[in-house]
Simulated assay, not measured.
Amino acid sequence: MAKVNDKKREKISVATEIDRLEERRERCQDNLERAEFKSRKERLSEKERQELQEEMAIINERVQKLDKELQLLRGENRKNMLLSVAVFAISALVYYTFFYNEANT
């Protein structure tokens, strides 16, 4: 099953993957905020409070993991953008060198 997910992920652009991870991070952040609100506003037994704190710790770990993945993907996206700009610049230079100069001579 993991191989199928990897193949599907290969077809997804970096920008799409960034959007997907940002949505997941936002959902985790919302869940964390709800849990924090619940811990402040509701009267909880010691056991319920401990379970809620454990849940909050798990959510925090997920958010940190998603932040690391996002950082890596943004770096990859930056590299792709620079490569695109370089290809465009080379193409413009070739066009100018061969076609624009020939038209002026």
Rank of each mutant, 00 (worst) to 15 (best):
A89L: 09
R74V: 05
N104E: 06
R25Q: 05
K47H: 12
F37R: 13
E76M: 13
S91A: 14
I12E: 10
V14D: 00
E76C: 08
A86W: 10
R40G: 03
V4A: 06
M56L: 13
L83P: 04
R34P: 01
I58S: 09
C28V: 05
Q71A: 15
D67R: 15
S84W: 09
F98S: 05
E17F: 02
E102S: 12
E69W: 12
A15M: 09
R9L: 01
N104T: 10
S45L: 11
S39T: 14
S84K: 14
V63N: 07
S13W: 01
D6Y: 00
M81W: 12
L93R: 12
Q50N: 04
L44S: 04
M1K: 05
A15Y: 10
E46N: 14
T97S: 06
L72I: 12
R20T: 07
T97V: 09
E33L: 04
R74Q: 14
E26D: 01
E23M: 06
K11Y: 00
Q64T: 14
Q64G: 11
V14T: 10
Y96N: 08
I59E: 02
K79T: 13
G75E: 07
N104C: 03
Q50W: 08
N77Y: 06
E76R: 15
F98C: 07
E42H: 08
E55C: 05
L32G: 02
L72Q: 14
R62D: 11
F99L: 03
E76S: 09
K7V: 01
N80A: 11
R74W: 07
V4P: 00
L52I: 08
E17R: 11
K41Y: 06
V87Y: 10
Q53G: 04
D19N: 01
A92F: 09
F98I: 10
R40A: 05
L52K: 08
E102R: 12
F88W: 06
V14C: 06
E51R: 13
A2Q: 03
A35H: 11
E33A: 05
Q29W: 02
V4T: 06
L93W: 14
L66N: 03
Q53M: 10
L44R: 08
